[in-house]
């Protein structure tokens, strides 16, 4: 893989001497070629890579090389800083309604992990002392309702269903009313997976949004997604105005460049990451960890950070 070698390649392309004056245009250009390849191999969208590389180039040329670093390491340090800041400098939390219940709606492509994540989120919030309700809003996928019921049962959170004969809009509306009258302070709506280009189903989500006015519309994205992540994020964000992103299946070995793509096109924070199939496998998103994962050089970075 290109990744494993990024740090070494940079070391080899650039001068090996430490602390040698300022980064020259030539140093930076050579380094950025490798950085560009690494990001592409990590599935960061092509256009996103191009803009990113341009921006970093502008910032890096003329920068003093720290005493303890080689020019290659200095570039990596800058790349990592820029990447981290692009990811959102700090951890972004859920917004709770000033007047409960807080309504959260999960949306995304088929198989991204919405139903599982609904359960994880409900479990997490319950542990924090909330009283969540899950709403089964997927009337299409075979056994989607049953799946949410099983998941809800595992985290001991009630699941509101009306079968698969009513529209998701009616179900969401009734579910929210049910939650309000039962004193639930968090309401999580699971929705069916859909393609961002399926107009009818995207309109259905807009109708659900219009009627229940969620405080958080979270786009669930599979971290293994390739170049298409920008199209998906752009469409969901454009049509629904998402509030944040949840990145799933990060327990795999993908570099997860989709995170950068989605973040860049939507400017919306990544709030959680899914790290497994079990319902406790949900964690807050750490921008710095994601940056070094995409670059594939955690060890090098920790060395540089000490400098």
């Amino acid at each position: 893989m290109v990744f494993e070698g990024l740090a070494e390649k940079l070391q080899n392309t650039l001068k090996k001497l430490k602390g040698k004056g300022k980064l020259t245009e030539k140093d930076v250009s050579e380094a950025m070629r490798e950085v560009k390849l690494a990001l592409l191999e990590a599935d960061v969208n092509f256009k996103v890579v191009k803009d990113f590389v341009k921006k970093v180039k502008e910032r890096a040329v003329g920068v003093d090389v720290l005493e303890s670093l080689t020019p290659g390491q200095q570039v990596v340090k800058i790349v990592n800083e820029e990447l981290t800041s692009l990811m959102g400098e700090t951890q972004s939390k859920l917004t709770f309604a000033s007047k409960p219940p807080t309504i959260i709606m999960l949306v995304g492509l088929q198989g991204a992990g919405k139903t599982t994540t609904s359960g994880k989120l409900a479990g997490l919030l319950k542990k924090q002392g909330k009283r969540p309700l899950l709403i089964a809003g997927d009337i299409y996928r075979p056994a989607a309702i049953k799946q949410l019921q099983v998941v809800g049962n595992q985290v001991d959170v009630p699941v509101f269903t009306m079968g698969d004969k009513l529209s998701p809009v009616d179900i969401a509306k009734a579910g929210v009313e049910h939650g309000i009258s039962h004193g639930n302070d968090i309401i999580i709506i699971d929705t069916a997976g859909r393609l961002h280009i399926n107009e009818e189903l995207m309109e259905e989500l807009q109708s659900v949004k219009a009627i229940v006015k969620p405080h958080e519309i979270l786009l669930v994205i599979d971290s293994m997604t390739g170049q298409d992540a920008v199209n998906v994020a752009e469409e969901f964000n454009g049509k629904l105005g998402i509030d944040g992103v949840i990145l799933t299946k990060l327990d795999g070995d993908t570099r997860g460049g989709a995170a950068l793509s989605v973040r860049t096109v939507t400017h919306k924070p990544i709030k959680f990451v899914g790290l497994g199939e079990k319902l406790e496998d949900l964690e807050p998103f750490y921008p710095d960890r994601m940056a070094s994962r995409i670059l594939g050089m955690g060890d090098v970075l920790s060395l540089i950070e000490k400098a």
């Binding site: 599935d43 298409d228 570099r255």
Partner: peptide, 11 residues
Amino acid sequence: LDATTGQNAIQ
């Protein structure tokens, strides 16, 4: 394999 998947599909 999911067509939406990027380079991880090779792995």
